[in-house]
Amino acid sequence: MKYDKVFTYLIKTTCTIAPSMAEPFIFPKIHSFPPLYTKQPNLTVQEKQLESWSDLILNYCQHYRVTSLSQAGLPLTSQNSQLKLDQLPSIFENKSIDRQVNDEFKSIIFKYLVNKLHKAEYINVKKKDEGIFVWWKPLLEWASCLYNHMNDTGQTGTVFTIFELTSSNELGLPESLRNIDSSVMIRILRSMVKQGRTQLIMEDGEIGGVKFI
């Protein structure tokens, strides 16, 4: 009878399918188009250009499960602990055609991702140079996958530390929820507080414990 419950849970969690992460990301052809690296003067074209950059960034981050980028566009955190982040191919520079995006245009692209598409968020709204969270999976979806897992496995009501949620796998998290960087996890948890699904226990200004309700 107990297994029946496990079964229903298994079939319900579509969150468990993990993509393969070893292959290098294949950049679209437009990444080799030299003018992509110059902000276009024609505004209609520029809009299209910003869309292309956004698609590229989202696909890239999803591929490597990168959850945040620095202001310069370098990966800050990834769920894939085997990746060497500083060795990933560069997003904003293409050495083979000797082109790169300048800082001004980078921040315009990020602004587009954040304000127009709502697929990214500044890590610190007051200090935009700290970089962005990239939500190739919407924040709400992260939250509900995590909550459903805790609920389905009967782990609501227990207090966990951020460390337990991010670094160990005592909680039996599906692969898609494992190894989330603590900065990203805290962002997810805060969104769940608003939904009334989580309580945070504060200690000296930091999160000491998390309880799913």
Binding site: P34, P35, P41, V45
Partner: peptide, 16 residues
Amino acid sequence: WLDTQGLKGEWQYWEP
């Protein structure tokens, strides 16, 4: 499309 990063900084105009 404009490209300001051509060889020796020469501006190139690309056909999209």
